[in-house]
């Protein structure tokens, strides 16, 4: 759990705000393609880290030059985990929608929106903090 490498924590907050906006649009339009695009962004973040996503690029290009240097760096592990949760939820939505489940895209987008909005507005990663609940459910089912 040692640190050393770090990410400017304001980048992921901006990315979460953009993610929230995209997911809100998916909820309003029901567009599976837009949800697929967001899932692809999550996939990049889950594999290569949040800085590698288009949102990370936008932050470095447009926002970062207007700000001072970060006072504190954040460890990338929680950020990558958050991207994985996003990928799982939106990916499931895309798959179910492709199978013809009505409301799947809107439902998954709404769920992911709650998580992304919490991240953007409160700096809270719900899935990261609720690990014990997930672990207990898993062990109860013997997975």
């Amino acid at each position: 759990m040692s640190s050393g490498v770090g990410v400017d924590p304001r980048g992921p907050r901006v990315a979460a705000a953009l993610t929230s906006a995209v997911l809100a649009l998916v909820v309003l339009t029901g567009s599976v393609w837009l949800l697929l695009a967001q899932a692809a962004v999550f996939a990049i973040g889950a594999v290569a880290g949040p800085q590698a996503t288009p949102y990370g690029w936008l932050y470095r290009r447009l926002v970062r030059p207007r700000l001072g240097p970060p006072t504190e760096l954040e460890h990338p592990a929680p950020l990558i985990f958050a991207q994985r949760i996003g990928l799982a939820v939106t990916g499931l939505g895309v798959v179910l929608a492709a199978l013809g489940v009505s409301g799947a895209a809107v439902g998954a987008a709404a769920l992911a929106f709650v998580a992304a909005f919490l991240n953007a507005a409160f700096g809270l990663c719900l899935g990261c903090e609720l690990y014990p609940v997930i672990a207990r459910l898993r062990s109860a089912r013997g997975i």
């Binding site: 339009t29 929106f113 709650v114």
Partner: peptide
């Protein structure tokens, strides 16, 4: 859809 987004927003703020 507007109602779903509104509900999601309220839930997020409460949490």
């Amino acid at each position: 859809r507007f109602a779903v987004l509104g509900a999601a927003l309220v839930i997020a703020v409460v949490i």
